[in-house]
Amino acid sequence: MGVIDAAVVITILAAAVRIATPLIFVSLGEIITEKSGVLNLGVEGIMLMGAISGFYTAYTFDDLWLGMLAGVLVGIIFGAFHAYFCIFLRTDQTITGISLWILGLGLSSFIYRIAFSGYFVRPRISTFPRISFPILHEIPWIGPIFFNHNILVYLGFFAVPIVWWLINKTEFGLKIQAVGEHPKAADTFGINVQKIRFFSVVIGGAFAGAGGAFIPIGSLGSFVDNMTQGRGFIAIAIVIFSRWNPLFAVLGALLFGTMSAMGTRFQVMGIDIAHQALLALPYIATIAALVMFNLSKKGKRGGAPGSLAVPYEKE
């Protein structure tokens, strides 16, 4: 293998886990949103808003947790905004999502310029420190890859079974699935379709806000214009790739993280594989996954909620 030894592999995979974390947050939220029958293409914009508000709060109050909280709150507000338009005004969800993205793209950088207008050096915060799990982090390979990260990474992975449980085992989850599959039936059950959808989108917004805030607070330590670089859209791809299953979404996020980490690493090491090719792989894999789901006889819809992106109107 030459230059690629075990240490490099471990570095790459550990980085992959870190890169995957915001994707996990966002795709978990998007799964909840889409399960309820609403498509939120605007998570990219929500992430950016989460990033700026998280960074600004963390910087001003010198409190990382407060920053995360701010990110989540702004995510909730923007989620509610999207929900209001899509659910109550029944606007086109694709266009509304793209509007949200453009708005978030502008607003985040606008706020950054205003809030940090006099600064000559890019303002920085110290990110969450790494916590090594006792004992577990000593396991060869597994330890350094999975158990040597900051608290937010653990939180992200911990959220996965929680969200799975929420969707599949709780009554709220059953209602989410019901309004996403067959809103009219849910209505006859006496379920308030619009209310459930609204909450689902808001929860999705909260997750997207958290995912956005993670990037400056949990990873980079500063804010850069358009710093999410399309990760919101990647998260949406992961949702499809995972067939709306939180457990598979982790795999999708890790796959993307690995490719991304390999690309960067190989570039640094000067290995003669175009790193762009590696970075392109997850996108191509997503398309391949979409095609495969549609080819398979059983899931013509690829496991998509029956009424995804279809507004519901009471007669």
Binding site: G45, F85, L89, R90, T91, D92, I95, T96, I98, S99, L100, W101, I102, L103, G104, L105, G106, L107, S108, S109, F110, R113, I114, S117
Partner: peptide
């Protein structure tokens, strides 16, 4: 001294107004 990003905000808002009014 108004950041260029105001334009993106206006673009996003125009769209929201358009879809909102469309529904109205």
């Amino acid at each position: 001294g108004v950041p260029v990003f105001l334009i993106n905000i206006i673009q996003g808002l125009v769209l929201f107004f358009v879809v909102g009014l469309e529904s109205y």
